[in-house]
């Protein structure tokens, strides 16, 4: 079994490793808890680097923007944090979790 077979091109952790080897700073965001109809299950990941590029998904596109912003802080400060996105009907359009679910996302720097 070759590496190429085992891990495909859009593998989040493979890309995070490549970014690190290229000299970038990287943070990982992972869905740790979900309630209701959240689109991605616990364990789903996003890798973010210091210039705001990111791969993967933690919500199917709903809250990635906010997570990337927080991840840049995490990279700068070197400390992890956990974010909660709970979405009421009124907020659904603003934050973008239109499905109405709730998620906790753990963001950590890779040091």
């Amino acid at each position: 079994m070759s590496d190429a077979e085992a891990l495909n091109d859009d593998d989040v952790l493979e890309i995070a490793e490549r970014w690190l080897k290229e000299g970038h700073s990287v943070a990982l965001a992972t869905v740790v808890r979900t309630w209701g109809s959240s689109p991605r299950q616990a364990g789903s990941q996003l890798a973010i680097r210091e210039d705001s590029r990111f791969v993967g998904s933690v919500s199917g596109g709903c809250v990635e923007g906010a997570v990337v912003g927080e991840a840049l802080d995490v990279i700068g400060l070197g400390e992890p944090r956990t974010l909660h996105f709970g979405v009421t009907d009124d907020e659904a359009w603003a934050v973008g979790l239109a499905c109405g679910g709730e998620i906790d996302i753990f963001i950590e720097p890779v040091t």
Binding site: A6, L7, L13, E14, E17, L20, V110, T111
Partner: peptide, 17 residues
């Protein structure tokens, strides 16, 4: 997470463990 931990994790995944 330490960089070494991420590399070890990817190595384990490539090996199918």
């Amino acid at each position: 997470m330490k960089r070494e931990t991420l590399l070890a994790l990817n190595a384990a995944r490539r090996a199918g463990r």
